[in-house]
C-alpha cells in the first residue's frame, strides 16, 4: 500500500477559509503573465498576493494582474506595500476591499527602503484597526516572538514573520525564533519573505510554520515554473516531516542495524558490549544540550501531542 498524506485531516483554516494548500504565492516580478499562470498552476497555491497601485492613465491595457486569474478559484490577499505608516496601510486596505474581492489584507509597512524590514509599531497599530474594521488581517512582521504574540492578540487571523528581508533569499536567519513563534501561536504562522529556495521552505515547515508565502524565489528563479513545483513539494515534505516528528539530535552514532548476533571473523576483536553501552550513555548525556527541539509545536488541534513531545524531550 502506498502512503498518502491526508490533507483533509490537516487543513489550514484562516478567516474561515479552509485551504488545502499551505503555499501562498506572490505575483510580482514574473517574467510574463504566461509564466505566472504556469507557475501558479504548478504551485497549486490557493492564496495569491498582489499590490494596489495607481492605474497607468496612458496605458490602461498594461493592466491589472487580476485578468490572469479570472477562471481560477483563489483567495486574494492584497498587500499594503508602499505604506510606511499605519494610516497609509489602512487606506490601502480599504481601497483593496472596495475592489470587491474579499476582505483579506496583508499588512506590510516598511520604514527602511534598504532592508524593507517591517515597522513593528505601525504594523501592530494597523493590525488592530483593520481587525476592528472586519478585515482578515495577515500582518507581515519581523520574527520577534513577543511581537507575533501581540499581533495575534490584536486580532490577526494569521501572523507572517519574515525569515529574512524581502527578496533577499537569505533563508531562515533565526530558526530559533521562528520555532518559538510557531510553538506559541494560537493562529496560523505563515513564514513570509527571505526564502531562497525549496530547502528553506522545508526548514520553515519543519520548524512548525503552518504555511509559507513566496514570491521572488519563484518569479526570479531560472525556471519559475519548476521552482513553483519544487516549493510545493517542499511545503508538503516539510509539513509531513513536522507532523511525523523528527528524532532527537545526538552527539554519537546509534546503530540502525541490530548489534546482537554479529558474526566475528575468527581472531578479530569485535566491539565489546561494555563499549557499546558507554556510547549509548554518552549520546543521552549530550542529547538535552544539543536538541533545541526545533519543532516542539504540534498542530493546534492536538495539545496532547504537544505535551507528549515535551515529555519526550525531558
Amino acid at each position: 500500500m502506498t502512503y498518502t498524506m491526508n490533507t483533509e485531516h490537516d487543513p489550514l483554516v484562516i478567516g474561515g477559509v479552509r485551504l488545502a494548500s499551505r503555499f501562498f504565492l506572490g505575483t510580482g516580478r514574473f517574467p510574463s503573465p504566461a509564466v505566472l499562470q504556469e507557475a501558479l498552476t504548478a504551485s497549486k497555491a490557493e492564496v495569491v498576493t498582489f499590490a494596489v497601485r495607481r492605474v497607468n492613465l496612458d496605458f490602461a491595457e498594461d493592466d491589472s494582474v487580476l485578468q490572469h486569474f479570472a477562471d481560477r478559484k483563489l483567495t486574494y490577499l492584497p498587500n499594503t506595500s508602499g505604506a510606511s505608516s499605519a494610516e497609509e496601510a489602512v487606506r490601502i486596505a480599504r481601497l483593496a476591499r472596495a475592489a470587491g474581492l474579499g476582505n483579506w489584507i496583508k499588512v506590510e509597512i516598511s520604514a527602511n527602503p534598504r532592508t524593507l524590514l517591517p515597522d513593528p509599531i505601525e504594523t501592530l497599530k494597523a493590525t488592530e484597526q483593520l481587525a476592528a474594521e472586519g478585515f482578515v488581517v495577515l500582518p507581515y512582521t519581523s520574527d520577534d516572538p513577543i511581537l507575533c504574540k501581540r499581533l495575534e492578540e490584536a486580532g490577526a487571523a494569521a501572523v507572517m514573520p519574515g525569515g529574512a528581508p524581502i527578496g533577499s533569499g537569505l533563508g531562515i536567519l533565526n530558526p530559533y525564533n521562528i520555532g518559538l513563534i510557531a510553538e506559541d501561536a494560537n493562529v496560523p504562522i505563515i513564514v513570509d519573505a527571505g526564502i531562497g529556495s525549496a530547502g528553506d521552505v522545508v526548514q520553515a515547515m519543519e520548524l512548525g510554520a503552518d504555511g509559507i508565502l513566496v514570491n521572488t524565489p519563484v518569479a526570479k528563479a531560472v525556471d519559475p515554473v519548476a521552482m513553483a513545483y519544487a516549493i510545493r513539494l517542499a511545503v508538503e515534505a516539510g509539513r509531513a516531516s513536522y507532523l511525523a516528528g523528527r528524532i532527537p539530535k545526538r552527539r554519537y552514532a546509534s546503530a540502525s542495524s541490530e548489534q546482537a548476533g554479529v558474526s566475528p571473523l575468527s581472531g578479530s576483536d569485535p566491539l565489546s558490549a561494555s563499549a557499546l553501552r558507554q556510547s549509548e550513555a554518552d549520546a543521552y548525556a549530550h542529547e538535552a544540550a544539543v536538541t533545541m527541539a526545533q519543532n516542539m509545536r504540534t498542530h493546534q488541534s492536538s495539545p496532547e501531542a504537544l505535551r507528549g513531545e515535551e515529555k519526550g524531550l525531558v
Binding site: 499590490a51 492605474v55 524581502i166
Partner: peptide, 10 residues
C-alpha cells in the same frame, strides 16, 4: 482623484 487597481506583488 486616485484611480487604483491590482498589480503583481508579494
Amino acid at each position: 482623484l486616485e484611480l487604483v487597481h491590482f498589480v503583481g506583488g508579494g
